[in-house]
Nucleic acid binder design. Sequence first.
DNA 1: CAACAATGCTGTCAATGACAACAATGGTGG
DNA 2: CCACCATTGTTGTCATTGACAGCATTGTTG
Lengths: 198, 198
Amino acid sequence: MPTSRPYHHGDLRAALLRSAERTLREKGVGALSLRELARETGVSHAAPGRHFKDKQALLDALALDGYERMNQALAAAGDRPGLSFEERMTALARAYLGFAVEHPELLELMFARKHHPDSSAQLAAAVDQSFGSFTALIADAQERGEIVQGDPEHITLVAAASLHGLAALIASCALEADEALAGLDEHVRLLLHGLRPR
Amino acid sequence: MPTSRPYHHGDLRAALLRSAERTLREKGVGALSLRELARETGVSHAAPGRHFKDKQALLDALALDGYERMNQALAAAGDRPGLSFEERMTALARAYLGFAVEHPELLELMFARKHHPDSSAQLAAAVDQSFGSFTALIADAQERGEIVQGDPEHITLVAAASLHGLAALIASCALEADEALAGLDEHVRLLLHGLRPR
DNA sequence: CAACAATGCTGTCAATGACAACAATGGTGG
DNA sequence: CCACCATTGTTGTCATTGACAGCATTGTTG
């Protein structure tokens, strides 16, 4: 009987992650249940336990996956040596906020403060890599004399926190995505030139 | 028997909120259970349902309470007409980040994107009030010519998003609280003067 | 003082996460 | 080729939880 599913799924872990991200996107993290996930994937209620020790382990895996995709987008957006600092920063900002707009629930998971001790190391590394995209740009711009001198880490924090704040506001529905994207160029310009009158 | 609790608690709602915020602070939102809450407060497992239609309703009430306290702190910090813009903004930033450092889990609840339709109006108003503290400062500084002209809402967004980003990073353990607080003055200065070399 | 609304209680239900014990599968060394 | 064994699914079970229904108690108001 070829119609019957084989005992071994083949790549259950990936299938679970795919299904989980789908429900995360469509119904939010609150609607994520391991058992429901198993049902959708056509396996028994305990099968997910073989691949994710915990529900939290699944959420951590989702978050890590999100970071990997986001970091890829950030790296691609930041790697434009020919452009000016303002242009590159705007591109980076657009990439980050674009991700936030498309995956707000996932972003919320990535921000979440509760991780398994196991995953937290990997997640911390992923966060560092995200910051790295910004730090690289900042350091490069400092070498070119395009921006102020000083501890690159600290300057990165100013730029990254500003964008992170916008992303968080979007993710928490406190800010319209269109509005944020429309004002992005001006936002970066204000960051660069400061609030002081000129 | 005067030792027996009276049938009516007196102010169960407030007691539940107090207890809930305690466990929120100590064990995180994941450990919040209506039944456990009822046990701690010494009432039956269904009693909380009289005051909070839902678990989400309780969380919304917690968030709203958080906003009220935070907005009070923000309003107090921003109301210093004698100081310069930089000083006032720094005071406001210190108040906001101080709240974030002391109540990271509560802040996470306040940011959360899932609210009951009922509460969401109140919460939106609370968010508006938070923004209001910043907008008032920005508009005032514009009148005094201390900062650049332009749409006050948009300029507020730059300043507020920057601090919100720091708060979110602290709440998600991606940034050490000490580090953020130590660099706050410099952070505000960079916002004011921009990243451009000078 | 007699309705009556507000508030609390007991009982119950389905859903869930977690775990234990068991079964099928597939690879590997003898 | 096959016996072992780790991997991966399965069934069964349990305590906890959120939600609801129905009843009890209290205090208020006409």
